[in-house]
């Protein structure tokens, strides 16, 4: 399958920065390549490479204690690594924003990706994280804009799921 134009990803980065996000925590991922590269090149932002996604959950809670805003960029498989750490977000009522690039989703060719990919929404819902799904490029910026308001104005925990319809499936 064709990769969709990455123009919306540059728009997302500009939107996140405009809305005060400075900490970009990530585990390297092709779906988030533009956001990660932009954060690494941005002297006013902090790109934090994680060894496992749960570090990002705690990192963003620490950022909030200090008055900063962050976003966790991860793949759907990383959601499973976050579950117990989300106790901190739910119990502490920390704002939380993550962008999840989906695998095991629309057109996935690797069977290893299905168990966690299909569990993303029920697992996040069980830990009190609201999921917003993006399937078309024109939905990306308004959805992340809504997620920023929900997280940092209302203090909610929000995951924006970037579907494989949007980012393209890997044809294994």
């Amino acid at each position: 399958m064709e990769q969709t134009s990455p123009g919306w990803q540059d728009e997302l980065y500009d939107l996140l920065r405009r809305r005060g996000v400075t900490q970009f925590a990530y585990v390297p991922d092709a779906g988030h390549r533009v956001l990660i590269d932009r954060a690494l090149a941005d002297p006013a932002a902090q790109a934090v490479a994680l060894t496992t996604e749960e570090e990002g959950v705690a990192l963003l809670a620490g950022a909030d204690l200090g008055g900063a805003r962050g976003v966790l960029l991860m793949q759907s498989s990383g959601v499973g690594n976050c579950i117990n750490m989300l106790s901190l977000v739910k119990g502490g009522r920390f704002p939380f924003l993550t962008l999840v690039s989906m695998r095991g989703d629309f057109g996935e060719g690797n069977p290893w990706q299905y168990p966690m990919g299909q569990a993303v929404e029920p697992v996040l819902a069980a830990m009190g994280v609201i999921c917003l799904r993006v399937e078309r490029p024109e939905e990306a910026t308004p959805t992340v804009g809504a997620a920023l308001t929900m997280a940092f104005q209302a203090g909610s925990a929000i995951a924006v799921l970037l579907s494989q319809k949007l980012i393209g499936a890997k044809p294994f």
């Binding site: 990002g56 705690a58 990192l59 950022a63 909030d64 200090g66 117990n84 901190l88």
Partner: peptide
């Protein structure tokens, strides 16, 4: 002081996020 009673494994990365947010402290 923020003292935890769960979320085991979270103290060090939480401190990192706070340290990056507050380079003055």
């Amino acid at each position: 002081a923020f003292t935890m009673a769960g979320a085991m494994g979270g103290a060090a990365p939480m401190g990192l996020g706070l340290a990056l947010a507050r380079p003055d402290r």
